[in-house]
Amino acid sequence: MIKLLWLSGITCNANTHSFLNYPFIEQFLNDFEFIYHPVLDSSYTLQEIVSNEIECDVLLIEGSISPEFQRADVSIEDIIRKYAPKVQKIVTVGTCATFGGIFSQSDYKDVTGLHFDKEQKNQKFENLFDKTISISGCPIHPEILVNTLYAIKGDIALRLDNFLRPKEFYAYTVHNGCVRNEYFEYKVDAHQFGELEGCMFYDHGCQAPFTHASCNKILWNEVNSKTRVGLPCFGCTEPTFPKANLFTTKKNMGVPENLPLGVGKRVYLTLAGITKAFKIPRLEKKLLDD
């Protein structure tokens, strides 16, 4: 049985609750044991975790880290220092634990992720770098966390990107699989909220074409995704989350400042000119009308 310690830093607990949305949670709890979890019954109390050294295989960290922040009167950094050297793997659960996230703007001093302060690599826990896997997302997708833990259990070597995220999940962009793709490809740029049609990239701040995540491949709650319902992707798996003016596309001379991954401005403009030549009636009218 793999023993897990779920440790919370500065957090809203949404990763905890997103994890509870994993459909086969009973199976998971048969295969893993939580020595501590913030909501589920576990073998030890938090008090016992911070005052003893309990045997453990994987350390899960949720929430951002600050030298000032304490859990049960013990500095979060000290708890990490105590458990991290012994565990086989560390998983940063969510964008706060990975990059600092939203609470890097809180009043605590020097708030960061375990290894990254946004894109910048931290020196502090460098010795733990090689045993860490990052599962970014605000919150994490339960299946991505759970399957990563099974990969650790099964000793499957995961290929990781520069931020230690498993490529299997983060090599995709949120754009992949979005049902609004055609409006993007043919640059049908008149999106209005509250409609089935249109792409939010051109005006409404959608970051899907340059955000690494599988939201439209592995759906949320097994049913949907933000972009499918017409809500822009806010780039919550990325080090820069949250950026400012999230519902507006920043443009320079009419060209979006952030272009799809790997696409240069010149090529984009050329391509935009060509796609504008398409007049596709199917995409100009309402999807479900005659």
């Binding site: 949404a14 609750h17 997103s18 949305n21 605000c138 919150p139 939201c215 949320w220 709650n221 049913v223 949907n224 995704s225 933000k226 972009t227 499918r228 319902v229 017409g230 809500l231 806010f234 919550c236």
Partner: peptide
């Protein structure tokens, strides 16, 4: 919630 909001938790729908 996800039917309307795309996901839960943390939608801004």
């Amino acid at each position: 919630i996800a039917l309307f909001g795309g996901q839960y938790p943390h939608t801004s729908y």
